[in-house]
């Protein structure tokens, strides 16, 4: 992976800087308002700075409840996605069966579809099947797109391991279990972890599908949405927003570093 060392023209640099500013300035604003002394409206510049909102947030049980639910939903959908996504990827890349490409497309479709379609579809399906809306319906909804993320990460790696590497391992005396442990797992492990982290981050800040599949429960993003219309203690939302940014950013960064150089996979120190 060589990067192009020749420098870009000045105009391009300015455009890139403007683009970055456009992307990141609003984020910065959110962070600043978490410290403002004004609680009813977002006033610029903030009349004063305070740390009190962190304490207020800490003492709000509804925040803890929403955070707990979000973490639970993200964790369980990620586990489901990692199991199903890996199995799908293994099946699609290891064997040649009729309709293989179609299956691949069908797995990827949920992420290509707008969330609102997925949401409506799931909601009517749950209604038809008389399934009451609960934490589990949210988890099911999130799992649909989490599976895709894990699948996409795993399938490329699986292709690389499939076929002759597995045969080489068997040829050298390793049975199925040893082959899985010493050849398949080290080669797909990082891709799986990366896929799982992305899935977790996606699930943690999901709004649309959640709106359609939730009952009375509030995940953290939904809680924030409701909070915005309330005139009191507004900066609490900003404090929570910072937490959301951290919780989603860290796994994404980790996933990025894990998959960055795909051909130098760690975990070979035998």
């Amino acid at each position: 992976m060589r990067s192009d060392r020749s420098s870009a023209p000045l105009g391009l640099k300015i455009a890139a800087a403007a683009g970055l500013a456009f992307l990141h300035l609003p984020l910065l604003l959110i962070f600043v308002y978490a410290f403002t002394t004004e609680e009813r409206s977002y006033q610029w510049p903030p009349p004063g700075l305070t740390l009190q909102w962190f304490a207020v947030t800490w003492n709000r049980p509804d925040v803890w409840q929403a955070l707990g639910l979000s973490l639970k939903v993200a964790a369980i959908s990620t586990v489901i996605a990692m199991i199903l996504g890996t199995l799908c990827a293994a099946a699609v890349s290891r064997t040649k069966f009729f309709g293989r490409e179609t299956i691949s497309l069908l797995v990827i479709l949920p992420i290509a579809l707008p969330g609102i379609i997925t949401g409506i579809a799931l909601r009517s399906a749950f209604n038809l099947a008389d399934i009451p809306f609960s934490t589990w319906t949210i988890i099911l909804g999130h799992a649909t797109f989490c599976v895709v993320v894990v699948y996409n990460n795993a399938v490329a790696r699986f292709r690389r391991v499939s076929g002759s590497l597995v045969e080489a391992s068997m040829d050298l005396g390793a049975d199925g279990f040893q082959t899985f442990r010493h050849v398949i797992l080290p080669n797909i492990g990082t891709a799986l972890v990366a896929g799982g982290m992305l899935a977790f981050a996606l699930s943690f800040d999901e709004v649309i599908v959640t709106t359609f599949t939730a009952g009375q429960q509030q995940t953290l993003p939904i809680w924030m949405l409701e909070e915005l219309v309330r005139p009191r203690q507004r900066p609490v939302t900003n404090v929570v927003a910072m937490v959301v940014v951290l919780v989603t950013l860290l796994p994404i960064l980790a996933a990025y570093y894990l998959t960055r150089d795909g051909d130098q996979i760690a975990g070979s120190g035998k």
């Binding site: 002759s164 590497l165 045969e167 080489a168 050298l172 049975d175 996979i265």
Partner: peptide, 28 residues
Amino acid sequence: PPYRRNVNTVFQDYALFPHLNVTDNVAY
């Protein structure tokens, strides 16, 4: 099964394990 045959193969595409160094490949 292949893993119980006293037969070894040099594959056309070599099929070396990319995650192992040369010694670990040979000692596999």
